[in-house]
């Protein structure tokens, strides 16, 4: 809860120094405020399950996979690209690992490596095509999406629950307890990913290059940055995150299903954008992305309550899209105003 205050404290003296608020900070503050306002009002006005600590922890448990996906997505978006294959890659990873673990009685560690391997393979190929052949990321990752979708059903077309692999079930059942409440280990992995990627973006040369390339890739080139390599790395890391996200989803659900990751790319993009990542590139923050996911989760929790009938499955989806639309238009207006200032 101290996070927003701290940020404001940091921002205040800056303003006194007549240093304008950067877009990154501005969006971060908006996102964090949006999340807290939503969550607090849910607690106050709706009460019920929102007041329970475990409800919040369950959000983390369920959305651990999406958090990692969003991290990867934000990274690619910061460089000015996009990757819409992550959702189906998640499905593919789940399905492959489920088949390996359940039908082949495979080793959990090997399964984990398979998961990461699949993600990296997608990231590698898409990254190569985007960075070195200059192909629109959207079209190539759209093809990736369908490739993963087809491959998933080739491997196994029916949902498959893992019920016999003892080692996996033990791992899945491992919880970290706080009194009566618990989180799954997936949450730890997801939060670790957030922290690592945040640090990479903040304090490493590679991380700063992501921002430079997204800000203006011609300038970045003039400044002596290897633009192609940077774009490639972004896609590779995003692929890694997709593989990891698939594994976390499998740990949470315990089953493979072609529909597992359906629409996850959308949620990841929406979370990134709500979290303050600009589609035009160059602006974004991993912490913001985390709060973007939490906001998304909260909306999806609140909306059915508001419409009264929890069996109207469409409202959360429409609300999220509406919010995405709103943020997109907001970004577009900000860019237009900036351009006008320049001219």
């Amino acid at each position: 809860m101290t996070a927003p205050k701290k940020k404001q404290a940091e921002v205040q003296p800056k303003l006194n120094n007549k240093v304008a608020l950067t877009e990154t900070n501005l969006f971060l503050i908006i996102t964090i405020s949006v999340f807290f306002v939503m969550y607090v009002s849910a607690v106050v006005f709706l009460g019920g399950r929102f007041t329970k600590v475990q409800y919040f922890l369950d959000i983390l448990n369920v959305y651990a996979s999406l958090i990692t996906l969003t991290c990867g997505m934000s990274l690619v978006m910061i460089t000015g690209g996009i990757d819409i294959s992550v959702g189906q890659v998640t499905s593919l990873v789940c399905m492959t690992c489920a088949v390996y673990l359940e039908n082949k009685g495979g080793n959990v560690f090997v399964a984990f490596l398979i998961a990461i391997g699949i993600g990296l393979a997608f990231g590698l190929i898409q990254g190569l095509l985007v960075a070195y052949l200059n192909i629109q990321p959207f079209i190539i990752t759209l093809a990736g999406l369908f490739f993963a979708k087809g491959l998933t059903t080739i491997i196994c077309s029916d949902p498959l629950a893992i019920e016999t692999n003892k080692a996996f079930l033990t791992l899945k059942g491992t919880h970290i307890k706080f009194g009566n409440n618990y989180i799954e280990i997936g949450v730890v992995v997801a939060l670790a990913t957030v922290i690592i990627l945040f640090s990479v973006l903040r304090w490493t040369k590679l991380g700063r290059n992501f921002y430079a390339v997204g800000g203006n890739n011609q300038s970045a080139n003039m400044l002596g940055i290897n633009v192609k390599l940077t774009k490639f790395m972004a896609h590779l890391i995003c692929g890694f995150c997709a593989g990891l996200g698939g594994w976390l989803l499998l740990m949470n659900l315990g089953s493979g299903n072609p529909a597992n990751g359906e629409g996850a790319e959308m949620n990841a993009i929406a979370s990134s954008i709500i979290g303050g990542t600009m589609l035009s590139g160059g602006v974004g923050n991993i912490i913001g992305s985390l709060f973007g996911v939490l906001s998304l989760a909260t909306i999806k929790g609140i909306v059915p309550k508001l419409t009264g009938t929890s069996d109207d499955p469409w409202w959360p989806n429409i609300t999220v899209s509406g919010m995405l639309c709103l943020f997109l238009i907001l970004q577009s207006i900000i860019i237009a105003r900036k351009n006008r200032k320049k001219a």
């Binding site: 950067t22 490493t204 040369k205 590679l206 700063r208 203006n216 400044l223 002596g224």
Partner: peptide, 20 residues
């Protein structure tokens, strides 16, 4: 790069160390 800080713009692409 307009989205980076003044200092960063002065040093990016020139530093040897992988950390900033």
């Amino acid at each position: 790069c307009p989205n980076l800080t003044v200092a960063e713009n002065m040093y990016i692409g020139r530093t040897k160390s992988p950390l900033t």
